[in-house]
Design a protein around this nucleic acid. Sequence first.
RNA 1: GCCCUCAUAGCUCAGCUGGCAGAGCGCGUCCUUGGUAAGGACGAGGUCAUCGGUUCAAGUCCGAUUGAGGGCUCCA
Length: 627
Amino acid sequence: MGDKDVSQAATGAPAAGAAATGATDDADQFFETAVRGSVEELLDAGAHGEIDAMRHSSAHVMAESVLAIFPDAQLGIGPAIDDGFYYDFLLPRPLTPDDLAAIEAGMRASIAADHPFVRKEVPFAEGRAFFEAARQPFKVEILDDLAAKAKETGTPLPPTTTYQQGSFVDLCKGPHVASTGKIGPFKLMTVAGAYWRGSEKRPMLQRIYGTVWSTQEDLDAYLHRLEEAKRRDHRRLGVQLDLFSFHDVSPGSAFWHPKGQRLWRTLEAAIREVQDRRGYQEVATPMLVHKKLWEQSGHWANYQDSMFVLESEGQTFSLKPMNCPESTFIYKSRLRSYRDLPLRLSEFGRLHRNERSGTLSGLTRVRHFVQDDAHIYLRPDQLQDEIKELLGEVYEVYGWFGLEPKFTFGTKPDKALGDPELWEKAESQIKAALDSFGKPYRIKPKDGAFYAPKIDIQIEDALGREWQTATIQVDLVMLPERFDCTYIDENGEAVRPMTIHRAIYGSLERFIGVLIEHFAGAFPVWCAPVQVMVIPIADRHIEGARELETLLKARKLRVEVDASDSRMQNKIRLAQEQKVPYMLVLGDREIEAHTVAIRNRAGDQENGVTWDDFIDRLAEETAARRP
RNA sequence: GCCCUCAUAGCUCAGCUGGCAGAGCGCGUCCUUGGUAAGGACGAGGUCAUCGGUUCAAGUCCGAUUGAGGGCUCCA
């Protein structure tokens, strides 16, 4: 399946020759991008605007400084990126933090000198000879690729353009700022390994990341944003809020603590309620499956390396990495009539994918996760209505969190399988559904899966970061054809259904990770693991607190009593740190009158509310799932 | 998987050029029984991730392993 971030959200199918689909990278790239590792990409410094020109210029200045310190350094590429720039170098030794400081100092000197950026165009051969003499083999390789490309297309060799500031010359198509002095406040951030041209068969270079901004305020704001992201990091908050932990006995799989599991169950119950209401039927299929299933689906050939495989009695099994093939066994367990469709089979599938060790990260990149998956078998004439229904479902669910879903329609890729006419029909119906749904959407041409046009759903969190979560894929080939699914139509003939794979949260793990960061741990009242902390002022109030606790629990509200011998102030502080929405203080006055003094986590105060009123209000707020 | 960095108490971290294992929070006991973000005293708690090496001596230096973090790559 296409997008990087979709993988654990998406249901899926084998990517026969997936490498050739030219999959795009991040959900936030909605323009056509150069193919990874191509000459275009290497030369495209991303300098599309003034600030990007400055960022790209910063990369040049950094290369100048690195070269001054390491005269033998070989230069890779140095483009502008979101928030800054990087440059890749082949260096004689690993860089240290001291090196970064020295490189920064060199950059400051170059900026203070205010060298102009001088563009120069020379004939190809001369340019190539220059970089050859400068012992810059990566630059020569780029030029040779350009030459090969020109030969292929029959166009004349392009001239070589270079930019020079001070004594430093770099192969570059620009543009740049006028001079080094125009570079704003910057900071070098980190060093990371990066393969030359993204290929693990090529040398590993050292990539230095930097950030640069027009003004000091912008730089400070950016650094502050990073701090804020760190503060909200779900891995940190997961420990602080006692939601989950990771242990080396099962890398990439979360251990859910009681509070995390409570949150999980609340989210699961909520989507289950929606599914029941919208005509889904929940199923459960085995986790351990014979390899012949994956041979039939095509995954064995393409994704065996990503599956956990085990042997028993001479037979080969694997832990399922996805649910969809198994749903076909339920579909085919009896003859289906056109009257039965759409048949919506939902499943909270526990999946295992053997992600490479270096890629694991918190809840967002795991080896074991649960999808709120569903497979909908339907007649082609039902497609438009069903899609529209699903868009509504996404809207409803995301509304519980105050999230505005963004829809992206990925259309037929070049390598698509299946009948082109079928594709065309499916795409026009999806488009009609999107249009009639009435919310804006984006189209990403050729970004569909090779077996299915799809709608990916992104959300933007409180820090403006975009996440891929839900997905809706119209499967024209994989389940219907490979698993030979049919239904009996009005004429008594067996015909192919279409299938929709969809997940609303996507992976529960990942979704919870996103929620933690979006809300900085302060979950909406309806799903907060602890909704109410009852705080007796003195020991003599504990009994009353327990009574109130019982009443709240009777309404299935999530409550705890802080019966420790701490002072009330400390109990409030701890509840506040746990981001508990409501703190109910109980002292003599309250016990006597059966009221509570309510303090919410924003610090607002409301005294003298009766127990019954509070319970009714909380029950209503919970049922409404207000964000 | 690859490159770099990291791993010390439940948590956050200090521990310099090798020389007796530390702090705050949390936890336990006791005192305190309180009115909206930390009351006090005492105490328990560590095979310094694991394995090996150098050394009179290793938390500290070297190597390997495991895990984590930042990237690269991959992602049905």
